[in-house]
Amino acid sequence: MMKKKLNGYLIAGCIITGIIVLWIIIGRFYTPYPPTKMSSAKLQAPSAAHLFGTDKFGRDIFSRVMQGSGTTLLIAALTIMIGAGAGTVVGAVTGYFGGIVDEVLMRLNDALTAFPSILLALVIISILGPGKYNVIIALGIVFIPSYARMMRTAFAAQRDVNYIISARLMGASNLRILLIHMLPNTLHVLLPALTIGFNNAVLAEASMSFLGIGVTPPDVSMGYMLSEAQGMFRSAPWYALSVGGVIALLVFGVSLIGEGLQIMNKEVN
């Protein structure tokens, strides 16, 4: 019963995400129209020629979404990798060792959490200049604190658990304890957080575009398109709906995988 269910989420998630990823990969090589090609057929409703309709410059939204979701996927995935990676390290160190390291890192962590992410992003973009990869770095840093805090709790909760204490008594090195004994037990916290983080990263990129510091044309991202579509909700609802729909589907697929992994992880345990 349990077994069947977990596969269900995982399979459904993989199928949805897989289709989108495949679609994105195809988009690297082929799009129905060149994504920046303008035409006089502006703001046309979806049709056979333009599956998602056209935008204010007569560009084919389907082609743009194909390319834009690739950018977004890249941004979100790398952002999460930076955020969760660094966050886990910080969380492990602070949660396991405690003490002065914990104090200092957590104060810094708090400061970073409390620091408005827009301002932080502006600073980083100011130093590094605009562009896709700098957006990733900026967002990655923004995402560290929440992971660090969560992982710290997860690690700290295990610190005084019997088997960890006995591992320590048996002379296992700290690194070994952290990696072999503790890390697997934090996965149930980390995995769902990764998928939630993915959603947040997509959104954060959208908010940055909304405020004018995201990716720069001719690069196109879902966030950029969504903020553009907002102003045309009445005259071209398909624009916002198709972009929003693909974002939702992408995030949905990824969260299903997360759900599936979580259950599978539990089964193994």
Binding site: N199, V202, L203, S207, L226, A240, G244, A248, L250, V251
Partner: peptide, 8 residues
């Protein structure tokens, strides 16, 4: 519900 962006 989680996948819908708040500003959307």
């Amino acid at each position: 519900c989680m996948a819908v962006p708040a500003f959307f």
